[in-house]
Write a protein that binds this DNA or RNA. Sequence first.
DNA 1: GCGACAG
DNA 2: ATCTTGTCGC
Length: 232
Amino acid sequence: MKLAVSHPWDLSVEEARALQARLAAQVIAELTFDPAAIQTIAGIDVGFRGEIARAAVVVLRFPSLEPLDSACAEVPITFPYVPGLLAFREGPSVLAALERLSTWPDLLIFDAQGRAHPRRLGLASHLGVILDWPSIGCAKSRLIGVHDPPGDAAGDWAPLYDGEEMVGAVLRTRPGVQPIYVSIGHRVDLPTAIEFVLRCTRHHRLPETTRYAHQVAAGEELPIGQQQLRLF
DNA sequence: GCGACAG
DNA sequence: ATCTTGTCGC
């Protein structure tokens, strides 16, 4: 499906930061949909092979987490890795992959930060805004902010602060493993974002959405329509 | 000036 | 992210 998205990606570092500051004002930091109506959730991740970015999107049925659809796209890299400007490096490939989807998801979960960003516009919020679609940021490590260590039980979390502002949550998805960084992307609130990440998590630190997307981005096969093996 | 820094 | 073997722990 074609996406009605017109967005400038070929910008200088200074222009990119200025654009983020403007787009950040468009983030809707509230729940604008009915959580009970969510039937599909997409996991999004990007891998790199030399000078090529390979983005993968996997759509899972919710809450069963059964893979329904997936798509990937390879795009030449045109922007360097600059902390805080990840969207300008991975954004184009993610949009290309989304365009190849045949099943549009109700919610997007990114392997990146959302609001927990210097200008409140991590990749998850950035794409959420330009697509004007519900999104959540779910990162493996910290970009900004300070926090106390979350409790040891699955589901325990600690607020992530940037100064006086709470920008996300440091969530323990499994006992005894490093927590992950959850923040709102667009059109959701933090409690709901945390809830969905937890409900997408099975036996691993990362939610199934992210794990499937990571596999596809790495070139592996996705067991769509097949019975899922229980290896644990 | 020094250190931090999603993927 | 990516380059890379063995190794510690459940």
